[in-house]
Amino acid sequence: MGCCGDEENDDDILNPLSPNSTTTQSVDSSDDDSTISPMNSHFSALACRDTLRLIFEKLPIPDLACASCVCRAWNSVASDQEIVAKSFKSPWKLKHVIGKPASGSFWRDNSLAKFAISHRIARGDSVASLAVKYSVQVMDIKRLNNMMSEHGIYSRERLLIPISNPEMLVEATCYVEVDPCAKREVAVLYLEDGPDHKAISSSSDSSLQNNGGSGSSSSSNSELGKKRVVESLRRSMHVDDATALYYLSIADGDPRAALSQFSQDLRWETHSALA
C-alpha cells in the first residue's frame, strides 16, 4: 500500500537502477581508481628513482628505515649512502659527515649520544676538570670512553667528550671513527685540529712494520707476553686495560712495582676524599 492509498507495484523492486544511481556508482568507482596503490597506474609514479630520491631525502632516519622495507625498488634508493647521510645530518644541521662506518647500523641512530668531541690529553688534565670544561658529567665521560678508573686518562692520547650543546654541531664537520680505547663507533667533532695526525701516525707505524723483516716473530712474542702481563694486572687491580698498561709503563715493565704504585695512588685518593 502506497503512502497515498495506491497499491505499490512490486515489479518496481526488480527494475534496473535509475540513471541517477548509475551516475553515482560511476563517480564512486572513479574515486576508487584515484587511490594510489599497486593495482592501478598511479603507483608507477612511486617507482621512479628520481621521485623516490626527492621524497626520501626529506625523511628522518626512522621513516627512511621503514621505507626501505616496502619493496626492492624502495630499498635500493633508501639504502643509498648519500640519502642516508643526508638524513643523518639533517636534525643537527651538520655540514659534512666524513668517513664510511664499519657497520651499516651506524646510520640507524642519529641521536646526540652518537656524537662526541675529541679532546687531546694535555698535562694537568683530569676527568673532573674536563667535565667542568665541557659541562658534562664525570660518569658520562667514563662511560663513553669505557673507563673504570680515572687513572686510564694518562695512557691515552685523547678522550671522547659527550656533546651537551647541540648548537656545536650546526655547520660542523664530523668524522666517523672507531675509537680503540672506547671500543665504539662515533661521529667525532674536532674543535681545535683535524684527524690528519692520525693518518700520519698510522702510516709511520705501517712503514715500521714493513721494515721489521726477520724481527717480526720475536716482536710478536714479546707483545704476546706483554698482553698476558697486562691482563694479569687488570684482574688484580680491577681496572681497564689502559690503566693497567699505564702503571706497567711507569714501573718499567715490573708488575710488582706497578701494583705497588697503584696501591699508593688508591690510598692517596681515599685520604683526599676523606679530608
Rank of each mutant, 00 (worst) to 15 (best):
M1D: 10
C3D: 11
N9C: 12
D11R: 10
N15E: 08
L17H: 14
L17P: 11
T22C: 15
S26H: 01
S29P: 09
S30H: 07
M39P: 08
S41E: 13
F43Q: 00
A47Y: 06
I55R: 00
A65W: 10
R72P: 07
W74A: 00
Q81M: 10
A85Y: 00
S90E: 04
P91Y: 02
H96D: 09
I98C: 05
D109N: 05
N110Q: 06
L112G: 01
S118D: 05
H119N: 04
R120C: 13
L130Q: 07
K133Y: 05
Y134L: 03
V136H: 01
I141R: 01
I141L: 03
K142Y: 08
I153E: 05
L159R: 00
I163H: 03
M168F: 08
E171R: 15
E171V: 03
V178K: 12
R184H: 01
E185N: 00
P195A: 02
H197S: 09
I200G: 06
S202F: 07
S204F: 15
D205H: 09
Q209E: 12
N211A: 13
G213F: 01
S217A: 13
G225F: 03
K227Q: 14
K227A: 12
R234H: 00
H238T: 14
A242G: 04
T243L: 08
L245E: 12
D252F: 11
D254H: 07
Q261K: 02
S263P: 04
D265R: 08
R267W: 08
W268T: 14
E269M: 12
L274S: 10
